[in-house]
Amino acid sequence: MTKELQHQFVTLLEKNQNIVHKVCRIYTSDQDSHNDLFQEITIQLWKAFPKFRGDAKFSTWMYRVALNTAITLYRKSKKNVGTSSFDALEFKIRSEEYDDTEEQQLKVMYRAVKQLSDIEKALVFLYLEDKNYKEISETLGITEVNARVKMNRIKTKLKQIVNP
């Protein structure tokens, strides 16, 4: 039974692993921390998996566990507090064919997101993942109105960072 459950879990996680990688990318700064957080999220997902009833989509359920682990359960090591692996993204962006202004804008935006708080990053992450305000509010445990208010504040904050 456990083996069957384990197999089921590993198959689902392998298919949906990008969600976890993306959360790691938002919250960590280097490959070691990325792997470390990935490991902790995997353990938390596995621990919670017996209670996963399948009434929600596995991916939706994963967003919640992964974000909760990153924001609340994970103990950051000192070196990666407050930074993120967006730097790595910048290199990738540069190597692709973008027009200069767009590239420049993106670079500044990634840096700006880096400066946000854990909660703000969670909102931005869910926004980037195209989640609606209902899902965002349910994941974080705030009202839909407050999720909108917070998101608007983040947009203003990002604007200020980008255009000081």
């Binding site: 590993v10 996680l13 902790e40 995997t42 353990i43 938390q44 609340t72 103990r75």
Partner: peptide
């Protein structure tokens, strides 16, 4: 999948 199986054996260090 093998990588993930290995991760399941690791210990949590959550708060």
């Amino acid at each position: 999948k093998d990588d993930i199986y290995k991760l399941l054996l690791k210990k949590s260090s959550s708060i």
